[in-house]
Structure formats: structure tokens, C-alpha cells
Design a protein around this nucleic acid. Structure first.
Ligand SMILES: Nc1ncnc2c1ncn2[C@@H]1O[C@H](COP(=O)(O)OP(=O)(O)OP(=O)(O)O)[C@@H](O)[C@H]1O
Length: 845
DNA sequence: CCTTAGGATGTTTTT
DNA sequence: CATCCTAAGG
């Protein structure tokens, strides 16, 4: 290996070489913590003779895991493949697949996402006669998750309830039944993945010992966001050799809402006696100006571990903050700058607090023809068509999965409704014994016996035949638990295609309308290609393993780094990433920090950490913006610039603000006179009881702030062109607004290219698709392009055509469907694909 | 059994 | 505003 010193600074080298015993690398943003981990893995292998399979490295996302593995590979070559680099969740799935039978599940278990959990909870409410007016499903699930994070079983939870709180008792009942249903369905939720692994280690000491021996060296990235169970896992796994190296930054802990416990990193030295602590102080990512802003903001938090952070990159571009009149103006100006600033799109990211904010930005991207990707929002794997297809697959892999069964038994319509389902449920319940639970699917196979006749009976029978048929094919090719007879006889891709084409599902989707259908078909294509990736990489591909893997894909894992796209995502999503130019938008009190956090000291500090994370993603340039009015929940809200902006000294940041509205002014009225000032202290109460748009109230309270601050703003920002009177210059930026909508934009200009994989595709389906009724600001061209059935095609069977994504291919067949031509093409690279003509934009060559 | 219309309900952030 | 859920009609 190259000389370590040439790649790492002194402290980093020390962290790499300190291989034995517990080690905490505590350091601020961009100080090269992740780089330390990568080189440490390589060092262990190259210099310490550690076997790669004796190393476990935990990262925060699957994507980060992949990147780390690649980098290790680059240094040590192929041996790097043998290192386990994964997220906690993926690690647990891998372990559980091998051993979960000891806990009374089988290895084909399903993983339930939040949606599935809600489905189960709805059932629980029904069974327990709970009125969802008194108790909310979400709340119960949150309580259960919390209990699980504290390691409580349903029984323990019930026993620790303080006194006779009615709701808590109910929650305890729900908890019990919820767990029972999951177990019956051979399913686990996200928390269970971690919890069951701990349970496994507790109940099966020799399994634990196996993994302790196996993972002699353990490394954990982003340790500040681990929760109690994850700590437990680490603690157990490292219990024998104690070679545990964690890196993190207490100032970047942003996942408390999901159970992360800052104590894990704060008291690492107590948990692992004899631990060595190394601090890294040089930041390699950002310019001095950016770093100064970050430090200024985070300095307002209390109880931090002291860390210095400095950089060589003296000076740099000025950090700016600008307040716009309306949220539209803000979005417009930001996207315009993205387009005009001369940087590649790829080098720019727009970060916001909530997913909802992406909408305006997206509209502007479309208007201005800026290629973009949106990370997050509705998770790809939660989209309806994806969940439907996966549910088919889950039923095949795990026929205990009643949630999957009920999801798709009547999709497409088979005339099987509530009445039939109830018969099946009754039969299943009546025939279940303590040894054997009769599943819905099993009940369906006995439709005849149960006395479900007529159409429903026939359709059930057909459904079962279809599933059994798929199972046979999969079994023969080795995708279930038996050895393959002929590996090449079938594949997961073909299964998905068959689900789409042979079950009537694809047909039903088409009836929804061509725009929706195309989006959905495209999404199904994506999962097919995911399946083929899986198939390529897996030594022994199994259907259930594929499903488990797919359940753990996070939005961020799908980020495209190879196409020139500007990235839009939440601040949370940006953790661990870096971009030359970063925009932090929506910097308004009430939004960021969110009004819910403004009263709670701890929550506010977490928001501040989030802000710190956001600022420190920027390498060269940081632009912050806010809007004075913004539509929230259907009504206009007036907001003042974020307190975090105030926390940055004016000499570090060029701030341009508008004056506040006077009390009686309406949002778009002339705003000059009022000029009262708000600012600094955003006392607790303001958003406190913040119920829905109590417009008058929030106006009054805003006014109160207004009275205080603005002097400061104006005086201090004298350096900027008219902080005052700018209310109309906010409009300036919207001058170009209308111009942007010039035509010439078609779906194909990037809807189909690399882009298709993320933001645009899916969202158009879910958020705009049905929205065709109302013009949602999306250009007409977008809604209709590619929708009309072409009257004729300029290619015919046998022609060679080219496709924007799949390349060259030969037309195999053209079927004149109801709404569109369905063209089958055999591509040289991508193989056979079926697609709609109006959408595929095939060109004859 | 399926469709649809209308009303109530609700929001950070995500593996 | 938007989604979800319920209740009545086909
Ligand atoms: N010794 C070094 N010399 C030069 N560049 C470095 C060095 N160490 C790290 N870097 C660079 O600094 C940037 C930040 O590194 P890295 O992502 O490892 O930091 P981090 O501490 O994990 O950041 P964060 O806490 O924000 O996740 C990267 O671009 C990395 O390549």
C-alpha cells in the first residue's frame, strides 16, 4: 500500500494504526472520518494480516456501503469483496436468513414497511374493536416502535404501564396482537430486524460466539445516529475481542425521531473501558467562510463535546442569504441560479427540510428545463405498482404473508371482495391449531371445500393455479429452497414480467389511463432491471433474498451520480454527502426549524444540528434562501427568516431581507409602510400551539416578532442593495418567471433518459398523474406529450430501431392495443422489452 | 361486489 | 391541499 502519510494526516494515520481495542474517532464534519474507516480496513488486511472476512464495517446507507467496498477494493484488490460492509439492517437480514428458524420463523420471512405495518394495525384495531378516533394507528405504531427500541416485549410493556392509563392498556393489547399477526405472517418489521438479531444472540450463545469470532474487527460509521438496539448489537458482537472502532460527530446526530441515542457516542468511553479517543480537527471539505458559518450556528448548542475544526481553504466565496417574497419566487430564483451559475448540475444540490418543498422546485426545474433528480418523497418501493408486484412475489416466496395476499388477491379485479375474504378468514381461524396456522393462501386452495362457489370460487382456484405454476418454475430453476434442476430455465425477471403480463395486472394498469400506465410500467421495468442486477451478483439467487434486499433499499441508494443532474433532497438525505455548491432553501422559522421543534429545547438543538449538517455539505459555495410567504396546508403563512440565519454573524454572510409585513397588510399588498422588525428571539409560544392555519393568530404573533428585530436586519445589511423596499424586487426574480414556460419541453427530453430512474418518473405518476384535472402548474406539454396514440408508426416488424435508453434493437411485433400500440423489441444490449409506442419514442434507423 | 362521492383528517425528518 | 376512509348507489 502507498504510504499512509501521503493520504492521511497525522491523526488520521493514528486512527488507522490503532487497530486493537476500542477506539472512538470524534470529529467534526468533513474531517475525513469516513476516509479513516476505508483506510483502516485496508490497513488491517494489508498490514496486520487480518482476514477480510473477519472485518465488519457498518455504514449508514447501502450506497455508502457500496462506495466503501469499492474504495477498499481499489486499495487491496479483490479480497475486499470478502469484507462485510453493510448497514445494520442489511447485516441483520443476512444473519437472520441463516438463523431465524431458531426463533420460530422461516428464512423466507417478509419484511413489512410502514405501509404494511399500518395495514396490520388496521386489522388489529378491527379485531380489538378500537375506534380510530380515540387512538391513532400511527400513534400506536410509534409507541410500539419505541417500546421495541427499549427492548420491551408486549408482556413487559404491559407490566410497566404506569397505573391504569386506558390508552396505554389498549396499546399494550395492540402490541400483543400486532406481534402475533406478524409472527403468523412470518413477517418482521424494520425494528424487528435489529431486535430479533439481538434476541437470537441472547437465546443462542453459540450463534453469538460464531459471529464474535467471525467479526474480530468491527467498524461503525455515523455512530452518533445509532439507536439502543444497534448499540446492543455492537456491544455483543464486540464483546469478545473488543476491537471496535466507531467514528462520528455528536453535532451531526439528526435521527433522534427514529430512536437514535446521542448517549451512545457521548459515553462510548464508559461503555468500552479503556477506549482511546482520537479527534480530527482539519476539515478538508469546505472553504473557511462556509466552515465559519457552520461553527457559528452549532456554537449555539449546549452540552457538546468540544471539537476544533479548521481548514486550509482560506477565504472562498461569500456565503449568502436572501429572502424572497413568495415561495415561488424563491424556487424560481434558485433554479435560475442553478442553471446560470456556470457549474455543472451534477455539482449542485438543493436541500430542504421537508419533502413537500420539493414540489415548487420541481415545477421550476421543469419550466426552465433543468435536469434534476429528487431523492425521497414517496419511496420507490412504496409505489403502488411496485408494492403490488412485490406482493405477488411475497406470496410466492412466503405464503404465510396474509398482508400480501389480501393486497393482491383482488388486483386485478377478480370479483373477490370482503365477503369472500371473510369466509377465508373464518376458515383459516377455525382450522388453525397451535402447531399449524392456516394461512389465507392455504384457505384459498380449499375454496371448494369451504363452500365458496360461483365466480369467486373459480377465480380463487385460478389464482392458486397461477401461483403454483410460478412456484414450480421457480423451484425447478432453484429460486426457492430446493436445488436447481435447470438454473437457466427461469429467472426473477421473467417472473416479474409474467406477473405483469399473465395475471391481468398489466392490463388493469393500462385502463387507468396512458400517462399513469406508462409511469407504472416504467417503474416495473426498473424493478425488473433491479432483479437482473441482483441475479448477476448473487452466487445462488433466491427469490426471498431478493425480496429482502429490495425491502431495505432507501431512497438515497438510488441516487444517480453519473448523470448531470441537480440533486434535490431533504437535509436528512444529504448526510455524509458533499457538493461544490449547496442551496439551503426554505430557511424560515416554522419550517426550519419546524414549528414543532421550537418549544422543545432538545428538538431545537437537533434542528440546529441538521442545519450544521446542511451547511457543511458545501465545498465551495453556499446559498441560503427563504420566502416571506408560503403556502402551508392550503393557506398562506407569513414567515420570518430562520433563527439560524440570525445566528450567523453578519460579517460571515451577506444577508438580504425584506421588511416584515405590517399587521393589516395582505401578503401581496404593498409592504413598505409597516416595516416593523422581528428577529432574534423567537420565543417559545409563537408556533407553540400552532394548530392548523389559525391565520389571524399566527399573523398577530408574527407581528410581535416583527416589532423587535428588523432594525438589526436593516442596519446590518446596509451593504446589500436595498434590503428595504425589496418586496417588489422579490418580484423581479419572478420577472423571468413567465418566460420560463417556453415550450419545447417534452417528456422525452429527459423523462426517459437516466433521469427516468428517479424523481420525475415516479412523481408524475403519484402526484401529478391524477392531477390532470387541475392544472397544477405543470406545463401542458408535460401532461400530454407522449400520451396520444400515434396514428401510425414509422417502423414495422423487422425494422431496426433505437431507444433512448436501451439502444439498438429489432422490432419483433406490434400489437394494436386499445389505447396504444404495444411494441416488442429485441435489443442488442437489454434483451427483449415490451413497450408502448407513444411512449418509447423509438426511432427507425 | 364494485364504483364514486363526499367528508373528515392531518404533516417534519426514514431504515 | 391531499390523502385516506366511509357510506351510499349501481
Ligand atoms: N487527509 C486528507 N487529505 C485530503 N483530503 C481529505 C483527507 N481526509 C479527507 N479528505 C477529503 O475530505 C472530504 C471529507 O471526508 P469524509 O467524507 O471522510 O469526512 P467525514 O468526516 O466522514 O465527513 P462527515 O462527517 O461530513 O460525514 C472528502 O472529500 C475527503 O476526500
Amino acid at each position: 500500500m502507498e504510504n499512509l502519510e501521503s493520504i492521511l494526516n497525522k491523526e488520521q494515520c493514528e486512527a488507522v494504526r490503532e487497530t486493537e481495542g476500542p477506539l472512538l474517532v470524534l470529529a467534526g464534519a468533513g474531517s475525513g472520518k469516513t476516509r479513516v474507516l476505508t483506510h483502516r480496513i485496508a490497513y488491517l488486511i494489508e498490514n496486520c494480516g487480518v482476514q477480510p472476512w473477519n472485518i465488519l464495517a457498518i455504514t449508514f446507507t447501502n450506497k455508502a456501503a457500496g462506495e466503501m467496498r469499492d474504495r477498499v477494493d481499489k486499495i487491496v484488490g479483490l479480497r475486499g469483496r470478502e469484507v462485510w460492509v453493510s448497514t445494520f439492517h442489511s447485516m441483520c437480514v443476512r444473519i437472520l436468513r441463516r438463523h431465524i428458524d431458531r426463533l420460530g420463523y422461516n428464512s423466507d420471512f417478509s419484511i413489512y414497511d410502514t405501509d404494511d405495518q399500518r395495514t396490520v394495525m388496521r386489522k388489529v384495531f378491527k379485531d380489538l374493536n378500537i375506534d380510530s378516533k380515540n387512538l391513532k394507528e400511527r400513534a400506536v405504531l410509534a409507541a410500539i416502535s419505541k417500546a421495541k427500541n427499549e427492548g420491551l416485549t408486549p408482556v413487559e410493556y404491559r407490566d410497566q404501564i404506569s397505573g391504569g392509563d386506558y390508552n396505554e392498556k389498549k396499546i399494550a393489547e395492540c402490541f400483543t396482537l400486532y406481534e402475533k399477526i406478524l409472527h403468523q405472517n412470518n413477517a418482521v418489521d424494520f425494528d424487528d430486524l435489529l431486535l430479533k438479531t439481538v434476541e437470537l444472540f441472547d437465546t443462542e450463545p453459540e450463534v453469538l460466539e460464531y459471529y464474535q469470532e467471525r467479526f474480530k474487527y468491527i467498524l461503525v460509521d455515523e455512530y452518533q445516529d445509532t439507536n439502543d438496539i444497534q448499540f446492543n448489537l455492537v456491544d455483543k458482537l464486540a464483546g469478545k475481542y473488543k476491537n471496535i472502532c466507531v467514528v462520528g460527530d455528536d453535532d451531526q446526530s439528526i435521527y433522534k425521531f427514529r430512536g437514535a441515542n446521542l448517549e451512545n457516542i457521548l459515553s462510548f468511553e464508559k461503555s468500552f473501558p479503556g477506549a482511546k479517543v482520537i479527534k480530527l480537527e482539519q476539515n478538508y471539505r469546505s472553504t473557511e467562510k462556509i466552515l465559519d458559518c457552520a461553527n457559528a450556528v452549532i456554537a449555539h448548542n449546549t452540552g457538546r463535546k468540544q471539537k476544533r475544526l479548521w481548514t486550509d481553504h482560506k477565504g472562498g466565496k461569500d456565503v449568502t442569504f436572501k429572502e424572497f417574497d413568495g415561495a415561488n419566487d424563491e424556487a424560481n430564483a434558485v433554479i435560475r441560479e442553478v442553471k446560470d451559475c456556470g457549474r455543472s448540475y451534477h455539482d449542485q444540490a438543493i436541500l430542504y427540510r421537508t419533502n413537500a418543498q420539493s414540489r415548487l422546485l420541481e415545477e421550476q426545474c421543469i419550466k426552465m428545463n433543468v435536469p434534476y433528480q429528487i431523492i425521497g418523497g414517496v419511496n420507490f418501493y412504496q409505489r403502488r405498482e411496485i408494492k403490488d408486484v412485490l406482493a405477488y412475489m411475497k406470496i410466492i416466496a412466503n405464503d404465510s404473508d396474509n398482508v400480501a395476499f389480501e393486497r393482491i388477491i383482488n388486483v386485478p379485479k377478480r370479483g373477490i371482495g370482503e365477503a369472500t375474504l371473510e369466509k377465508l378468514r373464518v376458515f383459516a381461524a377455525a382450522n388453525s391449531t397451535s402447531e399449524h396456522t392456516v394461512t389465507m393462501y392455504e384457505a384459498a386452495t380449499k375454496a371448494g371445500i369451504i363452500g365458496i362457489g360461483g365466480k369467486a370460487g373459480k377465480m380463487l382456484q385460478e389464482f392458486v393455479n397461477m401461483v403454483e405454476n410460478w412456484k414450480d418454475k421457480l423451484r425447478y430453476a432453484g429460486y426457492l429452497n430446493e436445488k436447481a434442476v435447470d438454473e437457466d430455465s427461469y429467472s426473477i425477471q421473467r417472473l416479474i414480467e409474467s406477473i405483469r403480463d399473465d395475471s391481468g395486472y398489466g392490463e388493469e394498469i393500462k385502463l387507468e389511463g396512458v400517462v399513469e400506465a406508462e409511469t407504472r410500467f416504467q417503474n416495473i421495468e426498473e424493478i425488473i432491471s433491479k432483479a437482473s442486477d441482483y441475479q448477476k451478483n448473487a452466487e445462488e439467487p433466491k427469490l426471498s433474498e431478493f425480496l429482502e434486499e429490495v425491502s431495505l433499499v432507501a431512497d438515497i441508494d438510488r441516487k444517480d451520480d453519473n448523470t448531470d443532474l441537480v440533486t434535490l433532497m431533504t437535509l436528512h438525505g444529504a448526510k455524509g454527502l458533499e457538493f461544490p455548491k449547496v442551496y439551503l432553501v426554505g430557511m424560515s422559522d416554522g419550517l426550519f426549524p419546524g414549528y414543532k421543534s421550537m418549544n422543545e429545547h432538545d428538538d431545537l438543538e437537533e434542528e440546529r444540528r441538521l442545519c450544521y449538517v446542511g451547511i457543511t455539505r458545501a465545498q465551495d459555495e453556499l446559498v441560503m434562501t427563504s420566502a416571506r410567504t408560503r403556502m402551508v396546508n392550503g393557506n398562506y403563512e407569513r414567515m420570518k427568516p430562520s433563527m439560524f440565519i440570525d445566528e450567523i454573524p453578519d460579517e460571515l454572510c451577506q444577508k438580504t431581507t425584506l421588511n416584515r409585513y405590517g399587521e393589516d397588510e395582505m401578503p401581496f399588498a404593498d409592504a413598505f409602510g409597516g416595516g416593523s422588525f422581528g428577529g432574534g428571539s423567537f420565543g417559545g409560544s409563537s408556533y407553540g400551539s400552532g394548530s392548523y392555519g389559525d391565520y389571524r393568530k399566527s399573523r398577530r404573533e408574527n407581528q410581535r416578532y416583527d416589532e423587535r428585530d428588523e432594525y438589526r436586519h436593516d442596519d446590518d445589511f446596509g451593504n446589500v442593495i436595498g434590503g428595504r423596499g425589496n418586496s417588489h424586487s422579490g418580484r423581479n426574480s419572478s420577472g423571468g418567471f413567465s418566460g420560463g414556460s417556453s415550450g419545447g419541453f417534452g417528456v422525452n427530453s429527459y423523462g426517459l433518459s437516466g433521469m427516468g430512474s428517479t424523481g420525475y418518473t415516479g412523481r408524475s405518476g403519484s402526484s401529478y398523474g391524477s392531477g390532470r384535472k387541475s392544472g397544477s402548474g405543470i406545463p401542458k406539454s408535460l401532461q400530454t406529450t407522449g400520451v396520444q396514440k400515434l396514428s401510425s408508426l414509422d417502423y414495422k416488424v423487422g425494422d431496426t430501431v433505437s431507444h433512448i435508453k436501451f439502444g439498438k434493437g429489432t422490432v419483433l411485433s406490434i400489437v394494436d392495443g386499445k389505447k396504444d400500440y404495444e411494441v416488442t423489441v429485441d435489443f442488442e444490449k437489454a434483451g427483449q422489452k415490451k413497450m408502448f409506442a407513444s411512449f418509447a419514442k423509438l426511432k427507425k434507423i
